[in-house]
Amino acid sequence: EEEEKKKEEIARLLGVSKEDVERILKKNNLDIEQLLRRVQREN
């Protein structure tokens, strides 16, 4: 699934687990696209 791939990509870029990414998304109330763009910009 596309969303899972995005979570895995974010996890890889941040050096965290996919579960961490899911927690970040919930905690910050971000959607996956916003987080992915933010992470890609910083790297």
Rank of each mutant, 00 (worst) to 15 (best):
E1H: 12
E1G: 11
E1K: 12
E1R: 12
E1Q: 11
E1F: 13
E1C: 09
E2T: 12
E2W: 12
E2A: 11
E2N: 11
E2R: 08
E3W: 08
E3S: 11
E4M: 08
E4G: 06
E4F: 05
E4H: 06
E4W: 06
E4Q: 07
E4N: 09
K5F: 11
K5E: 09
K5G: 09
K5Y: 09
K5Q: 11
K5H: 10
K6I: 15
K6V: 11
K6E: 03
K6R: 07
K6Q: 11
K7A: 04
K7S: 02
K7I: 12
K7N: 01
K7V: 08
K7F: 06
K7C: 06
E8P: 00
E8A: 13
E8Q: 12
E8Y: 12
E8D: 10
E8K: 10
E8W: 13
E8H: 11
E9Y: 15
E9A: 10
E9G: 04
E9N: 06
E9Q: 12
E9C: 12
I10C: 15
I10G: 01
I10H: 00
I10Y: 03
I10F: 03
I10K: 00
I10N: 00
I10W: 02
I10Q: 00
I10M: 03
A11K: 01
A11P: 00
A11S: 06
A11W: 01
A11I: 02
A11G: 06
A11T: 02
R12N: 06
R12W: 07
R12G: 05
R12M: 08
R12T: 06
R12Q: 06
R12I: 07
L13E: 02
L13D: 01
L13P: 00
L13V: 05
L13Q: 03
L13A: 05
L13I: 14
L14P: 00
L14H: 00
L14W: 04
L14A: 01
L14I: 04
L14V: 01
L14S: 01
L14Y: 02
G15I: 01
G15Y: 03
G15R: 08
G15L: 03
V16Q: 03
V16A: 04
V16G: 02
V16N: 02
V16S: 03
V16R: 05
V16D: 00
V16H: 01
S17F: 04
S17Q: 07
S17V: 03
S17M: 05
S17H: 07
S17A: 07
S17I: 03
S17P: 05
S17K: 09
K18M: 10
K18F: 06
K18A: 06
E19F: 09
E19L: 11
E19H: 09
E19Q: 13
E19T: 10
E19K: 11
D20Y: 14
D20E: 15
D20C: 11
D20T: 14
D20G: 05
D20V: 15
D20W: 14
V21I: 08
V21G: 00
V21P: 00
V21A: 01
V21D: 00
V21K: 00
V21C: 02
E22L: 06
E22H: 04
E22F: 02
E22W: 03
E22Q: 06
E22Y: 03
E22A: 07
R23W: 12
R23S: 10
R23L: 13
R23V: 12
R23A: 13
R23Y: 12
I24N: 01
I24C: 12
I24V: 05
I24E: 03
I24S: 02
L25C: 09
L25I: 08
L25S: 02
L25T: 02
K26V: 12
K26G: 04
K26H: 09
K26I: 13
K26C: 14
K26S: 10
K27V: 14
K27I: 14
K27E: 15
K27Y: 11
N28W: 15
N28C: 15
N28M: 15
N28A: 13
N29I: 04
N29C: 09
N29K: 11
N29R: 12
N29E: 06
N29V: 04
N29D: 08
N29M: 07
L30I: 12
L30E: 12
L30Q: 05
L30W: 14
L30Y: 09
L30K: 02
L30R: 03
D31F: 03
D31H: 05
D31K: 07
D31I: 03
D31G: 10
I32P: 13
I32L: 14
I32E: 03
I32T: 10
I32W: 04
I32A: 14
I32C: 08
I32F: 04
I32S: 06
E33R: 04
E33S: 06
E33Q: 05
E33F: 05
E33C: 12
Q34R: 07
Q34M: 08
Q34E: 15
Q34V: 10
Q34L: 06
Q34F: 06
L35R: 00
L35N: 00
L35E: 01
L35H: 01
L35V: 03
L35A: 02
L36D: 01
L36E: 03
L36V: 02
L36Y: 09
L36W: 12
L36Q: 02
R37D: 14
R37A: 14
R37H: 11
R37C: 14
R37S: 08
R37Q: 14
R38L: 15
R38H: 15
R38Y: 15
R38G: 05
R38Q: 15
R38A: 14
R38W: 15
V39E: 02
V39C: 14
V39W: 03
V39I: 14
V39H: 04
V39K: 02
V39S: 06
Q40L: 12
Q40R: 14
Q40N: 07
Q40K: 10
Q40I: 12
Q40S: 08
R41P: 05
R41I: 09
R41S: 14
R41Y: 08
R41T: 11
R41H: 11
R41W: 07
E42D: 10
E42W: 05
E42V: 09
E42T: 10
E42P: 08
E42H: 13
E42R: 08
E42F: 06
N43V: 15
N43L: 15
N43Q: 14
N43T: 13
